[in-house]
Amino acid sequence: MTLITTETGDPQILRVAVTRIDSAIAIQFKDAVRELVSPEVGRVVLDLNAVDFIDSSGLGAIVAAMKGMADHQRFDLAGLRPMVDKVFRMTRMDSIFVIHDTVDASRAGAEN
């Protein structure tokens, strides 16, 4: 199963291809992000637009993937649907990531 597709460039776009990031796939998801992130880019944007459900293990996988990146790299998020946005807000993890409304907005370098 393909969890993530990628578009090269800077920012590098990682598009999540599944609708759920839950405990059944959290570890594979983290590994897939780590494998796909290009060491050359300064910024990676994780497009969550396809995801309508995330639980705390999915959230943990995203945090773990971000922690695995080099110090000079930034890991942004884009396209959060309402339930996903709620999980980030309630755990205050929305304060850790730059979150863009859409991937297009993230390309423009906008903060929102």
């Binding site: 943990g60 922690k67 110090d71 755990t91 205050r92």
Partner: peptide, 25 residues
């Protein structure tokens, strides 16, 4: 009690969010 987030990247929590969500919702 939520985990502290004002820490370096490598110290950020990867778990412990579950009860926070259950209690909050």
């Amino acid at each position: 009690a939520p985990a502290r987030l004002d820490v370096p990247r490598y110290d950020l929590p990867e778990g412990g969010f579950g009860w926070q969500l259950i209690r909050g919702l």
